[in-house]
């Protein structure tokens, strides 16, 4: 891996496992009274959010603070960005302020890639979700959650595990990042959606595709429901909300078709009554809240590895955090 985390496709199997293993160690922290590590003391991390996102932004912020980084929240709303300042000028400004890493959420697909490739700033770029492209730290936290339930243990991957992702794949950056990462980790991914919500060319993606949720459920180890925006109905992606729910929504009856060990996941925010009923969302098999907690650990691991000096796969990879304190923290 490189200096940046822009796409889950950039992660080799070793990179991904290093992040997951590091996250597992860092997760121990959350059980302690003092949850802070000094690792990123004196380093500046900017959260550059061009799109509203309470969850992801808060998760990154908690992760950064637990690593003792100086955190700057640069929200596009109410800043010069909303007055027409370009991405380039914003980046140059952050560079001048000495940002060591920029966590960017942007409504335009490819904006983090532009930042990473440009000479506008020299720090690490971490993609916190770009348009309908990717959301790599979400995929990492999903993989982390799946591993804990389906193949727990440091160094373990997801070989042979069957992951079913249901919903608006066309517009989902979560689905794109997940198919890359889960495939890298050896899982078998099946997308389930109405044909209108699948991208052209998906037959060449490393996954299976089905239009029939019920037939896939018994062969699923982890089921991930994607949010479906009600407005999609107005662009004729499906006829009505009710029809979508009937054909592709997760409910108690369908949950009973899942194998005993299978988990139900959702990246949030959930639209209850649309893609998931309250019965499923509130069931013990649903890992939504757990995913949020895991998100902090995984983001800490990413920041730690990108900024803490460890080199991912293309160098002599550190299999454990190199500098201070994680061992001590245990």
């Amino acid at each position: 891996m490189k200096r940046h985390l822009v796409s889950a496709a950039d992660l080799s199997r070793d990179d991904a496992l290093l992040i997951l293993d590091t996250a597992e160690e860092l997760a121990q922290l959350s059980g302690r009274a003092v949850k802070k590590l000094p690792t990123l003391r004196g380093r500046t991390v900017v959260n550059l959010f061009f799109e509203d996102s309470t969850r992801t932004k808060t998760s990154f912020e908690v992760a950064e603070k637990r690593l003792s980084a100086d955190v700057i929240n640069f929200s596009a709303k109410g800043s010069s960005v909303s007055k027409g300042e370009s991405l380039k000028d914003t980046a140059l400004t952050l560079q001048a302020m000495g940002a060591d890493a920029v966590v960017i959420r942007h409504h335009a697909s490819g904006a983090p890639a532009r930042l990473a490739q440009s000479d506008w700033l020299h720090g690490s770029v971490i993609n916190a979700g770009d348009g309908t492209h990717e959301h790599p730290t979400q995929a990492l936290l999903d993989a982390f959650t799946m591993r804990r339930h389906l193949n727990a243990g440091a160094g373990n991957d997801l070989a042979g595990r069957r992951v079913t992702i249901v919903g608006d794949v066309l517009h989902s950056r979560v689905a794109r990042s997940n198919v890359h990462l889960l495939t890298t980790l050896g899982a078998q991914v099946t997308f389930v959606a109405p044909p209108t919500l699948l991208p052209i060319g998906i037959e060449n993606w490393p996954c299976e595709v089905s239009y029939d949720l019920d037939s896939v459920l018994p062969k699923t180890d982890a089921l991930m429901m994607l949010r479906v925006q009600r407005e999609r109905m107005n662009a004729a992606f499906f006829p009505t909300e009710r029809e979508y729910s009937r054909r592709y929504g997760m409910n108690g009856i369908r949950m009973a078709q899942l194998p005993e060990h299978a988990i139900v996941m959702h990246p949030g925010p959930m639209v209850r009554g649309m893609e998931i009923t309250a019965e499923v969302a509130d069931s013990p098999r649903c890992t939504v809240v757990e995913q949020v907690a895991n998100g902090v650990s995984v983001r800490m691991a990413v920041l730690y590895l990108l900024l803490g000096g460890a080199v991912f796969a293309d160098g002599p990879a550190d299999t454990a955090p190199r500098t201070d304190s994680v061992e001590n923290a245990q």
Partner: peptide, 12 residues
């Protein structure tokens, strides 16, 4: 619109 647009998440 094709393989690449699907992967990049850009409108086709």
């Amino acid at each position: 619109e094709g393989q690449v647009s699907g992967e990049l998440g850009l409108g086709g």
